[in-house]
């Protein structure tokens, strides 16, 4: 496979994952804002925009954080390089560039979703349609992953796509956790502060993990439990441990196909050992923020090494 094609597959799925994560974050923020007074709602939108790393771009365009402004900025603002529309455009552009490396079913699923999303986001989105937009984006992801699972050869292209997915997902989860880390310091729950459980719920909803968490923890909600769930519980597909386990498998498959390991496999092993050996107590001892910064740096280094190992660029 061409290095450029591998690069397209990687970024196609990174952007798809990013669009999907954005939609989940948006849904959670939207729901949260609904249950707040105006001032708190604005605060909520600010934190959603911040979690997406878009605060500067946003404030260059908007003076206030009304819901209407915020979700339109997130979904469709032309000057926002991180808008859902731009990401879906990138997904399709990369799919077109890698057209002969993906199955017809996968291409059609991407192209059809792109057409639907584009039609919906042509005009500003009213409050009544935010949910529909977010769902459409999540469905685009499901369709693409389903089409891939059911129709693509398990060759290197498949693994590059998966690597893109899990590098992006791990990064997004770590970023959300880091944004909210002050809510997740165990000291607060230890001392029994009347912490807003709604805020914790919000963290879980941002990664669509609220129901899975309740299922596993019988309704017991506390900061330690949430962090342990999102960082170390490899049963949950949006936990850091799950992402890295998937990433390790795909990188191992690539090494097998190519008959040799690269820098990416070595970095992966380091990151793996690190995560595997840690308990939740140790993470809080290191400091949640420090732990997450280190995790994101390792994650990014793995992505760079993959691009290098497999000659993504000339």
């Amino acid at each position: 496979m061409l290095g450029r094609t591998a690069n397209s597959l990687f970024w196609m799925f990174r952007h798809l994952e990013r669009a999907e994560n954005t939609a989940r974050l948006l849904e959670a923020g939207f729901r949260m804002a609904l249950t707040r007074d105006v001032a708190t709602a604005e605060e909520e939108w600010r934190s959603v925009i911040e979690a997406m790393g878009l605060r500067e771009t946003y404030e260059a365009h908007n003076g206030t954080y009304t819901g209407q402004q915020a979700w339109n900025f997130i979904l469709r603002e032309k000057d926002n390089p991180g808008s859902v529309m731009q990401m879906i455009d990138h997904v399709r552009t990369n799919a077109r560039a890698a057209r002969n490396a993906i199955s017809g079913e996968l291409w059609t699923s991407i192209n059809t979703s792109w057409m639907e999303i584009r039609a919906l986001l042509k005009r500003p989105v009213s409050q009544g349609h935010v949910g529909e937009a977010a769902e459409m984006i999540r469905r685009a992801g499901m369709l693409a992953h389903g089409a891939m699972a059911g129709s693509m050869l398990r060759n290197e292209g498949f693994h590059f796509a998966r690597v893109g997915t899990f590098v992006e997902r791990a990064d997004a989860i770590a970023r959300i956790l880091d944004m909210k880390y002050y809510l997740l310091l165990p000291s607060l729950s230890y001392v029994g502060t009347s912490m807003d459980t709604g805020q914790w719920d919000q963290v879980l909803r941002s990664v669509s993990g609220d129901r899975a968490y309740r299922w596993l923890n019988a309704g017991q909600i506390d900061a330690r439990g949430i962090v342990e769930f999102l960082v170390l519980d490899d049963r949950f597909p949006r936990s850091l441990a799950f992402c890295h386990s998937a990433l390790r498998q795909n990188l191992a498959a690539l090494a097998r196909i190519h008959g040799e390991e690269g820098e990416s496999n070595a970095l992966m092993r380091d990151a793996d050992t690190r995560l595997h050996d840690l308990t939740i107590e140790e993470i809080f001892d290191i400091g949640l923020h420090e732990f997450l910064i280190d995790f994101m740096a390792r994650n990014a280094a793995i992505a760079n090494a993959v691009a290098e190992d497999y000659r993504f660029l000339a």
């Binding site: 496979m1 061409l2 290095g3 450029r4 094609t5 591998a6 057209r99 002969n100 290197e156 190519h258 497999y310 000659r311 000339a314």
Partner: peptide
Amino acid sequence: ELVEGTDLRVVGGRVQMRTT
């Protein structure tokens, strides 16, 4: 393979494509 000019280079007297 579907190649663009930037994927190709002359190496050792042959036109070669940059693969993974």
